[in-house]
């Protein structure tokens, strides 16, 4: 019996490879552009501009800031985005000496969160104010997590609640409870099915890509913002492709079977 033949390279993923190459090139070009000091325009994201103001409110009221980096594991990019933003928020709470509480659902997120918050406190010269239990593991189950956090909100009444990351059915349980507790709330998630709940119950909501842009936006570092411009370029390319597809489908343009299947795959 002979060995089954196979190709080392997956030909069915050539379109994805082309997209990866184009995307990477766009990001690297704009990053280099930014490194050279060329000006980059970024539109305002009110939800992110409100973070410092929201922490300031908590400071004035003498109440804590609650930050939830989603309820997913650390292998999810939304959680990493949430952890990245946590670093910026922790720097502000450290500067204002405002208590910060970060409940998490996974031990790996706990370890990463503790490291990020500690580094943020060291970065602003407030290492002595850092407490390991600011970031705490509360429950491994989704609704046990929601129940614990809701209980915390009603007892401690945090002035500011920030939700950044992956959320599921508990999104509304958390956001509505925060609303009832009178907290100012900022949320961000890449999951479109949870966005309406956050929009209804929170003061500011970051939608989809804004969550991933947040760390670059808050850092004000040109090199990181260059990546956002590369992303915008890809978005324009996708819009052009969609428009081309719509026109060709509407007018039944014959573009050949091979190109058509490739176009559909893209």
């Amino acid at each position: 019996m002979g060995q089954e033949e196979y190709s080392v390279f997956r030909n069915d993923r050539i379109n994805a490879l082309l997209a990866v190459v184009a995307f990477s090139t766009a990001i690297l070009v704009f990053t280099n552009w930014a490194k050279k000091g060329k000006p980059l325009f970024l539109r305002k994201i009110p939800g992110l501009d409100a973070v410092e103001e929201a922490v300031g409110r908590a400071t004035e009221m003498g109440r804590p800031v609650l930050y939830i980096p989603g309820i997913e594991e650390l292998d999810q990019i939304e959680t990493i985005a949430g952890i990245s933003i946590l670093g910026r928020v922790a720097q502000i709470t450290a500067q204002y000496e405002t208590p910060l509480t970060v409940p998490v659902r996974y031990p790996l997120v706990l370890a990463a969160g503790q490291e990020v918050v500690q580094q943020a406190y060291i970065h602003v010269g407030k290492a002595e104010a850092y407490d390991k239990d600011m970031v705490r593991y509360v429950a491994g189950e989704q609704f046990a997590f929601a129940a614990t956090v809701n209980g915390y909100m009603m007892r401690e009444r945090p002035a500011t609640n920030i939700y950044m990351g992956a959320f599921f059915a508990e999104s509304l349980l958390l956001a509505e409870t925060g609303n009832a507790a009178g907290s100012i709330q900022i949320a961000g998630t890449g999951r479109p099915e949870q966005l309406p709940f956050f929009v209804a119950a929170c003061d500011y909501t970051l939608m989809g890509e804004e969550l991933y842009a947040a760390s670059a936006y808050l850092s004000h570092e040109p090199v990181m913002m260059g990546g956002l411009k590369g992303q915008d370029l890809m978005k324009i390319l996708i819009v052009v492709l969609i428009l081309a597809g719509v026109i060709m489908a509407t007018y039944s343009v014959d573009i050949g079977a091979a190109f058509k299947s490739w176009f559909q795959a893209v």
């Binding site: 952890i83 990245s84 670093g87 910026r88 580094q119 939608m207 760390s215 978005k235």
Partner: peptide
């Protein structure tokens, strides 16, 4: 929203892989 989020996630992944973004390390 999904296309924007997917591009954002891919861009962030690339920034992390290339070491451009280190905020997840607290830097």
């Amino acid at each position: 929203i999904i296309i924007g989020a997917a591009l954002g996630a891919a861009a962030m992944s690339l920034r992390i892989i290339l070491g451009i973004e280190r905020t997840y390390l607290g830097k």
